[in-house]
Structures are given as C-alpha cells and as structure tokens.
Design a protein around this nucleic acid. Sequence first.
DNA 1: TTTCAGTCAATATA
DNA 2: TATATTGACTGAAA
Length: 408
Amino acid sequence: WLTSLKSSRRARKCAPNSALGQRLFGETILGLTQGSVSDLLARPKPWHKLSLKGREPFVRMQLWLNDPNNVEKLMDMKRMEKKAYMKRRHSSVSDSQSCESSSAGIDYSQGASPQPQHQLKKPRVVLAPEEKEALKRAYQQKPYPSPKTIEELATQLNLKTSTVINWFHNYRSRIRRELFIEEIQAGSQSQAGSSDSPSARSSRAAHSSEGDSCDGVDAEGPPEGKPSGPEADEYSNATTKSQGGPAESAFEAGEEALQGARSSEKAEPFQAESLEDTDDEGRLRAPRQSSPPASQRPGEALETLPNSATEGDASTSAASTSVLTGESSYKSKESSEKISSVPSTSSTPAAGSQKANSLQSLFGFSEAVSSRNTRDSSLRKKKAANLNNIIHRLEKAASREEAVEWEF
DNA sequence: TTTCAGTCAATATA
DNA sequence: TATATTGACTGAAA
C-alpha cells in the first residue's frame, strides 16, 4: 500500500489524476464534500474540542485506513470511473446531439428555462477586500457586536445584515480554529523536539525567532484576540489545557478514538464519554508517548493573543463608525500571514514518514514547497505536520489492530 | 434568541 | 483539474 502510494505520488507529478483526490475520498469514504475534506485536513481541531459529530469523519478515516486494501479499492474505483467517463465522453463526441439534449435536460429540470433558474439561484456574495478589512476592524473593536452595530455595519458597507452576522460567526469560528492549530503545532513541535529531529529544531527556531505562527492569525491584529465574550474563556481554557499536555488534534487522537470505539458499545459508537482515554471533562488524556507538553512554552498562546482584552469594551459606535475610515495598525491577513514553519514531512525521520508521504500523496500534497508563496508554503507545512502526526499514530494503532466491529 | 460546530457549495487559486 | 477559501445554512446547546 505504501509503495503503491509512494509511486502514485511520483506519478502524480506527471499525472495528477493518479492520486486519490479529496473529492473522491470525501464523498466515498467520509461522506463529506471536497471543501469539507480540505478544511478538515488543513485545520484539524483538537480532539477534545470536537463534538461527536465532528469526530465521526476522523473515526471513519481511521477505520478506512486500517484496511490497506481500501486504498487500492478506491484507486480502482477511480480508474473505473475515469474509464466510464472517457467512454461517455467518447460516445458523446460521436453523438454530440444527444449530449446536448441531455445537458439541456439537466438545465431545464428545475425550471422552464435556464433564465428563471438563474434568477432563482441566489448569487454568492463575495466581499470586497475593503469590506473584509472594515469588518475585521470592527471585529477588533468588538468581536461580538450588538444587533445595532451589525445594523450600522451593514448599512455602512452596503451589505445585508445577515451577511454581516454570518461574517462575524464565520470569522470567530475560523479564528478559533487557527488558534487550535497553533496549539496543535506547539504540541507536535514539543513532541518532535523530544525526538530532536532536524525539522523540529528548525521549526522551533523559526517559531521563536519570527514571532510565531499565531501571526497568521494575530498579525492581523487583535481581532482574533482574546475576545471579551465567551471566546475569552475558550482561549484561556485551551491554553490551560495545553499546559497540562499538548493539545491533541483530531488526527492525533485517532488512535485513542478507535480504541475507545472498540471498547464502547456498538450502539453508541461515537460516545466520547465512553472513550477510555478521556478524562472527566471528556477530553482526551495526554498521549501515552506523551511529549514535553506545550507548556514548555508557557503562556505562549497568551502572549500571542491580542490585547483586545483591554479594549474589549470599545463602544459600539466606535466599532461601527470607524470601520470605514478608521486607521488600523493591523495588517491584512493576506499580507501578513507569515506562519512559522513546522516540521517538514520530508525531513521527518523514521516512524510514519513513509506513510506520511503516502498519505500526502493520497491527498495530493507536494512536499516541494514554493518559496514564492509563504502563506501557501506554511499552510502546506502545517498540513504535513498534522498528517505526519496522525499517520504515526494510525500506524501504531494499525499495528495492534483487531477486527473492527463498528458499523456506520 | 444567540452562538457555535459542522457542513455545503460556489468560487478562487495553483 | 485538484485543492483552498469562504458566505451561507442547519441543528444543537446555552
């Protein structure tokens, strides 16, 4: 399996379609769309932060990975689909009329003509960079704006109120996840540090010397900053927890999940409470091969947190009236997202690295990181690190695997 | 009612 | 074409 994946990774350079894609994997195995899979892989949350529903894809993933034949099966499926597609395409070329009529059938299936369908379909709102900047500034001032503020923002930016509300929801949520990733990185770096891999060393160096990866989030300023609302608790909790041990990502916890799952009732496959490795709060205990905890760098997460705690009470009007004209010290995420490097998969020694590469190939990663795009590069590195971690654990889990009795 | 987690799906990007 | 991003939506929890 590993060999085949490895070779497929090489092949992918020439033929990108030879690797399993997120779409196929997601839709076939996880029951998720491509975008969700991408999100899941790029921004895994700490296991203890995941709801039962949130854990499900990871458990599915692990169960699926436990059978090496599954990869081949899926590859076969992909090949067959491609063949079928080519066949269809070939036949449609020779009979373009039927193709046209069939596609027309699809177009008209929901309406009398394509025109009304277009009208019915709500166009996707795309916020202009200035609008995003303004919203971020508003977030800086007040992560939880009042309805009045939202109203004012919407008016000023000429947006729908619901759009502003959605934006704040999404932004808070995504900021939070960025911080989770930060925790995970801190944990995995500590872990890697214990093995003293060169990549880990370089990553630590990068981390400490150029701000830290939270910059990707924080550099844009206080927004993601410690919010004055419930998020503040989230932050402090997360930080506190990570001081007791590295924040365990969903990937990292896959092994424990499976063990817990095996020991749990069939009827309740996702009962987190039944996981043997969870503590009273339902979160997972530190891994057995636990590494030096994130607390090696105590308070780091807090240090990177913006200082909005002191400005959390910025007045509503301040938030709403300054968004358009107000000067801001914060840099745009796009321009300032310089996340520190993380252990590179290619240089990660021994355990799991082969599988890591394989899984990277599975999802189409390239370990050749382009230096022209730091943001992209750091994201890829993050993913590589995360995957490396889970692969290592999955490998361990698989080595002592028994028949899985779960059904989904 | 508000917030959040999780997800979809359109669109952008590589 | 595959992957990443992001506005919008749903259902659950507080």
